[in-house]
Each structure stands twice: as structure tokens, then as C-alpha cells.
């Protein structure tokens, strides 16, 4: 198996994990799927680091795996344990319809990805296609999920998609920026976690659709 195949495999794996998140109803499994997705992102980064001799990407890979596939999932699981909420996801749309919509979004993402000049050769095409599709799927997840936790996951999915493009297609970001982004993500998750707790405190639920009661 060449490195090219490995890249495509990992990217496909990320997309599949995105679909699984859409289809999954249990909260803990969703978080584990997200951890898997982040792990695959880390592998993509490491693979590129090896094949293109861009050793700074090892740091990226390390940060990604440590943070997104270990630290953040752990934190989110602890959060769920602590606030003791119902561990099922309540989507607005049922699973089959959601999957169909995501299929459409993937078609749009892939079709648009062919418009990029970077996307002519092999693996990169798939990386951009997967990234755009995941971006749309992440947004879709945000719209259709009621729980605040699942919205954090959706946001992180979007972030993964952006990172995939940044690692796989661009000549690479400076290390400072990468560290900054990693830090941003962790802070965002912390802040959102706190917000979730506040929402639960206030409403005895973390159903964000109840926030509309706040409007005057």
C-alpha cells in the first residue's frame, strides 16, 4: 500500500466517520467516532510529513492526536458524566433523511472541489473533496442537533475539515499558527463546555432550541 493509498484511505475514513456521527444516536459513541476522526487526521498529517519530508508536520500530527482524539473526548465525556444528561441524541431530522441530505452535501462538496487548481492530481483532489463535504456535514450537524454537546462536536468536525485542507493541500502553516489554532480549539471547547453547564443549570436541559424562550 503506497502512501498515496494511505492518504486516500484515511481521508475516506474521516468522511465515513462523519457519516457515522450523523447516523449515530448514542452520545458516547459519537464522541468516540470524533476521536477516531481526529486520529485519522493525525495519520494524514504524519503520512504527509514522511512522504514530503516536512518534519514540522509531525508536531501537527502529535498535537492533533493528543488534543483532539484524547484530551477533548475525555473532557466531553467527563462533562456528560458530571451533568448527568440523557445520553441519547435528539435530532430534528430522522437518520435516513439526514443521511440522504449529507449525501447531497457530499456531492456538492466533491463537485466544487474539482474547481480548485490544486485538485488536479490524485490525493489532493480527494482531500479537498472530503474536507468540503465534512465542512458541510459539520454545519448540517449543527443545524439539526438539539443538544449543546453535539453542537460542540459538530463545530469540531468543521474544524477538522478546515485542518485537513490546511495540512494536505497548502504548503503548510507556520508552527506558531498551528499551535495557536490548537490552543484556540481547546479554549473554545472549554468555554463551550462551561456554557453548556450554564445552559443546563438555567434550563435543566441542554436543548438549545429552548434558548428561543430568551427572546423578548
Amino acid at each position: 500500500m503506497t502512501s498515496h493509498d494511505l492518504l486516500i484511505l484515511c481521508a475516506a475514513g474521516m468522511l465515513v466517520s462523519g457519516y457515522l456521527i450523523v447516523g449515530q444516536k448514542r452520545l458516547f459513541t459519537t464522541i468516540r467516532l470524533f476521536a477516531l476522526q481526529s486520529l485519522l487526521l493525525g495519520i494524514v498529517a504524519a503520512t504527509i510529513a514522511v512522504t514530503q519530508s516536512r518534519h514540522e508536520l509531525f508536531v501537527t500530527a502529535g498535537i492533533t492526536i493528543a488534543m483532539k482524539s484524547i484530551l477533548i473526548p475525555w473532557f466531553l465525556m467527563r462533562l456528560i458524566d458530571r451533568i448527568g444528561i440523557h445520553r441519547e441524541i435528539e435530532p430534528f431530522l430522522n437518520v435516513p433523511v439526514s443521511l440522504l441530505v449529507c449525501l447531497g452535501l457530499t456531492v456538492v462538496g466533491y463537485r466544487v472541489s474539482t474547481g480548485f487548481p490544486e485538485a488536479v492530481g490524485g490525493a489532493r483532489h480527494h482531500l479537498i473533496g472530503v474536507a468540503l463535504s465534512m465542512l458541510l456535514i459539520g454545519m448540517f450537524l449543527m443545524v439539526t442537533r438539539k443538544k449543546a454537546i453535539t453542537q460542540i462536536l459538530a463545530l469540531l468536525t468543521v474544524e477538522n475539515a478546515v485542518f485537513l485542507v490546511a495540512v494536505g493541500v497548502t504548503p503548510g502553516m507556520p508552527l506558531v499558527v498551528e499551535l495557536g489554532i490548537a490552543f484556540d480549539v481547546i479554549v473554545a471547547v472549554l468555554v463551550l463546555g462551561i456554557m453548556v453547564q450554564r445552559i443546563v443549570d438555567r434550563f435543566d436541559s441542554m436543548d438549545v432550541s429552548r434558548l428561543s424562550q430568551l427572546k423578548g
Partner: peptide
Amino acid sequence: AGSLHAYLGYVIALVVWLMLVVWWRA
């Protein structure tokens, strides 16, 4: 509407629409 989901829905609708525009232009 004051609903978070509706607002997020507007965002995704806009993004998808822009992507479709890019598609048709390409």
C-alpha cells in the same frame, strides 16, 4: 425566530448556495 438552529440553518444555506454558484460558474 430567535432559534439558534434557524440561524445556523441560514448560514449553511448560504454556504451551500455559494458553493452551488461556484459549481455553475466552473
